[in-house]
Computed example of a mutant assay.
Amino acid sequence: MDQDDRLRHSASFGAAAAAYAEHRPNYAQAAVRWALERAPGPRVLDLGAGTGKLTATLVARGSDTVAVEPGPSMLTELRRALPSVRALAGRAEAIPLPDGSVDAVLSGNAMHWFDMAVAGPEIARILAPGGTLAGLWNVMDDRVDWVAGLARVSGTAAIGPRDVPTSWRTETADLHLPRTGVAARFGSPEQAAFPHGQRRTADSLIATLATRAGMLVMPEQEREATLARIRAYLASRPETADGEFTLPMLTGVLRVRRL
């Protein structure tokens, strides 16, 4: 994906901020603990915070949390949901915080939107020595048969390579650093995945998939056809045809330490 496409997709969430807040899952507690276990202190930045899904988890665990989000609609939703959190307008490429002011930078389902050639030095600048940079991604567990079928039916606009565990490691492995001198400021990356799940109905799962960037930028007729195909598939599966079910998920984490 080139820079223009990245910007177009990342900007698409604003129109769906309320739906994003309602339908997107939170993050596995064990994943957040692992992401932060080596951080030298409690000061955490949620970068590309969206509507505050990860921010809320950080606040609940007692972290001294600040959120930075570029989208006005997403930021408004975050401030409404978490009025006590310091929430700032800003981008990963221009973070409105002083040098060395946080012990960890976490990013929930957002790091792949960053221009890391620019954001990498910015993150290194605001991190204290020994600080942690971690990206977290909620992925659907396609080791489960019906989830694998859903991924095939949905297409990559709804369930892309970063959305399933069979490929998220490869897709995210190099996202933490630009290929510049800033790489010398970070150690070797580590990856881990933690069991997670979300209670859904067929309707709410369809609503979740409709908030994916690829779906939001899709032409309306194609989008409706894709959602209809997903709806028919879910109606055909005994696991999802009636009432509530648990969507099998993992929270994957990419973690690296600032030297």
Rank of each mutant, 00 (worst) to 15 (best):
D115S: 09
F114E: 06
G41V: 10
A184I: 04
V164T: 09
A225L: 10
L88Y: 05
D141K: 00
D2I: 13
E220K: 08
I123H: 13
F186M: 08
A241Q: 02
L45H: 07
A94E: 14
T55F: 01
D174T: 15
D2K: 14
V164I: 15
D242H: 02
L259P: 05
Y20H: 14
R38I: 15
T208M: 05
R91C: 11
A31M: 00
V147E: 07
T51K: 13
G108V: 08
H176C: 06
P96H: 08
R169D: 08
S188L: 06
M111W: 11
D103L: 10
D174S: 11
L106H: 01
G252H: 12
V144S: 04
T211K: 00
A67R: 03
P129G: 11
E244Q: 13
S12L: 15
G50K: 11
V139Q: 06
L82H: 14
L97Q: 14
D141Q: 09
R91N: 10
M111T: 07
S204Q: 01
V32S: 14
V256E: 07
R125W: 15
T166S: 13
Y20V: 07
A11Q: 05
R8N: 04
W113H: 02
S101T: 13
V139T: 10
I126H: 04
W34D: 06
E220P: 01
R125I: 12
G48C: 10
A148S: 12
E190C: 01
S236C: 07
A228V: 13
L150I: 02
R8S: 08
N138T: 13
M116P: 01
L127D: 00
A157P: 04
T55H: 00
M218R: 12
N138K: 09
R125K: 10
M1S: 15
F194Q: 09
A92Y: 03
M74A: 03
V32N: 06
P195W: 05
T65P: 02
L247F: 08
G252R: 10
T65E: 05
D174Y: 11
Y233G: 00
A15M: 11
T57L: 06
P25F: 13
R200L: 08
H176N: 05
R179F: 12
G52R: 02
G187S: 10
E93G: 08
A202W: 03
A56I: 00
R200H: 15
P195V: 07
G120F: 00
L216V: 07
T156C: 07
P238C: 06
A173T: 12
L7P: 04
P83L: 06
A210M: 01
S84C: 03
G52V: 12
A232H: 03
A35N: 09
G108Y: 03
S63H: 04
D5C: 14
D145S: 10
V102D: 05
S73W: 00
M111S: 09
T226K: 12
S107A: 14
D142S: 11
R199K: 09
S167C: 11
A87G: 08
R38C: 15
L75A: 06
A235M: 00
A35H: 04
R143V: 10
L97C: 14
G214Q: 09
V102F: 02
G181I: 08
D203H: 08
L54N: 02
T57M: 14
P40L: 14
A11N: 12
V182G: 00
E37A: 10
D99L: 05
M218K: 05
G131E: 01
T172A: 14
V144F: 07
T76E: 15
A31H: 03
S73D: 15
F13Q: 04
R91Y: 13
I230Q: 01
S154I: 00
R61W: 08
